[in-house]
């Protein structure tokens, strides 16, 4: 019993340290003491502006987006009992990005600020329903991945088309942002837009842990132990849509976090889905915060995309998982 507790304490400490490091990372090169003093209202006015309006929203979004991606991955893998399920790979993130781009380009988000996350949520929700319908309730690996590829390709193409048709000459540059994700120059406004949706997603997925635990024994066993599978499914779709919709609306598509993090942590939590869900949320937060610090250190001022780093780490890992899955004859 002490081992998971130790793990949670370690992960929480790591997230806290990375959050602090994220606050202190930036091109301005100001000392940590001075920066933190400015954050809490003391010190130079401009530095306070930088800390409160630029670095704080960036760190908060890194934390929330990472937690959302990690948790969504763990829940999807538990529900589909498939190690390759992940919001990026099954097309949820790309569909959320399409919803967000449509909201922005049609002017919906300008007319009504919540239009942006709501449209992203609608895109994410539709794609999860579509994947579940295409891959079937058991989520056979091949059907799941193929459905995900098709949905991702379609959503990506539609996103590019919408941005190509924009009257603004700069809109086309955004394709990279929606495909690769970034937290550069986000403001508190983005936090207020996305945070309520991600909170709702956490709240919807949190009670599913017991059901996911029961599902490891199979659907019949789960049903006989009192798990309402229909309700579980509904909450899962709503929760994933809220998490990925909220995260993608402000940060674009960040891939592979939901795939890698649950795998790295699975053994440490004794393969229990109930413990894997919160552990993956913490792990995801740490991963995205670390990646966002790394993009600022590797290429300062060039807005290297978050998704570039996560894919460089995640894609080889994905290949490794495919080989492993094949060996196990799944």
């Amino acid at each position: 019993m002490t081992r998971p507790r130790l793990l949670f304490a370690g992960l929480a400490a790591l997230v806290a340290a990375l959050f602090l490091a994220s606050l202190l990372t930036g091109p301005a090169g100001v000392g940590p003491g001075e920066s933190l003093a400015a954050l809490f209202g003391g010190g130079d006015d401009l530095l306070g502006l930088v800390m409160r309006e630029l670095r704080l929203p960036r760190a908060i979004l890194g934390l929330l987006v990472g937690a959302a991606l990690g948790m969504a991955g763990a829940v999807l893998q538990g529900f589909l009992r498939n190690p390759l399920a992940e919001p990026g790979l099954i097309g949820t993130s790309a569909s959320a990005a399409l919803g967000a781009v449509l909201a922005i380009q049609t002017g919906l988000s300008a007319a009504f600020p919540l239009g942006l996350p709501l449209a992203a949520l609608a895109g994410a929700g539709l794609s999860v329903l579509l994947v579940l319908a295409l891959a079937g309730p058991r989520g056979g690996t091949l059907a799941l991945i193929l459905a995900g590829i098709a949905i991702s390709a379609l959503a990506g193409a539609a996103t590019s088309l919408v941005l190509n048709l924009s009257p603004n000459p700069f809109a086309i540059n955004e394709i990279v942002f929606w495909m690769m994700g970034s937290l550069a120059d986000r403001s508190m406004l983005h936090v207020w837009i996305a945070a309520p949706f991600m909170m709702l997603g956490f709240a919807l997925l949190w009670p599913l842990r017991r059901g996911l635990e029961a599902l490891t024994l199979g659907e019949d066993a789960a049903a006989s132990s009192g798990v309402n599978l229909g309700r579980l499914r509904l909450m899962l779709v709503a929760g994933i849509a809220a998490l990925i919709g909220g995260a993608t609306a402000v940060a674009g598509t960040v891939g592979f976090v939901g795939l890698v993090v649950p795998h790295v942590l699975r053994r440490a939590v004794g393969a229990s889905p109930a413990r894997l869900v919160p552990a993956s949320a913490l792990g995801g937060a740490a991963t995205v915060l670390a990646a966002d610090i790394a993009v600022r250190l590797i290429a300062p001022g060039r807005d290297l995309k978050l998704g570039v780093l996560t894919a460089l780490v995640g894609a080889p890992f994905f290949l490794h998982l495919i080989l492993k899955t094949r060996r196990e004859g799944l």
Partner: peptide, 29 residues
Amino acid sequence: GVLALESLLLSDPDLLIEGRRYDGHARAQ
């Protein structure tokens, strides 16, 4: 080249000369 927003803020210029805005939405703008 790209000027990080926080470097711009801390440089505290006397005059800010902004790029023009085009119709339609772009994250660039």
